[in-house]
């Protein structure tokens, strides 16, 4: 009965216990959803509505995704050296060694 528990939290003023949601907004057709921030909501439906009210009031978006924060798994900052540094000297991985035809734009 999670929904009921969250309602009790509203009544008792226990604001900390609504789960946190990460919000992703697509600003225009054809673009990706981008992470814009997080907010509290009792369930997914409320999270989408809260995101609509908090993050799209100024015409920022045309589509919303919400994911409960606990389902996001992140890399460990302590791994940064072994994760990212080895890519530093691999310049040949960038596709910059080809002659592109003039007709190709936006590469």
């Amino acid at each position: 009965m999670t929904a009921n528990n969250t309602i009790s939290n509203v009544i008792s003023g226990d604001k900390g216990s609504w789960p946190l949601w990460e919000i992703f907004i697509r600003s225009r057709q054809g673009l990706d959803h981008k992470h814009v921030g997080s907010l509290h909501a009792a369930d997914a439906a409320m999270a989408i509505e809260n995101a609509r009210d908090v993050y799209t009031r100024r015409m920022e978006g045309i589509s919303i995704w919400v994911v409960e924060s606990k389902f996001i798994h992140a890399s460990n900052p302590d791994d940064a050296a072994s994760f990212y540094d080895p890519a530093n000297d691999k310049v040949y991985r960038h596709p910059t060694f080809y002659d592109l035809p003039d007709e190709l734009k936006h590469m």
């Binding site: 509290h40 909501a41 809260n50 009210d53 009031r57």
Partner: peptide, 12 residues
């Protein structure tokens, strides 16, 4: 409002 997000919702 009872929670920030709903404060914004009702203010909207």
């Amino acid at each position: 409002g009872p929670i920030l997000e709903q404060d914004i919702a009702l203010s909207n």
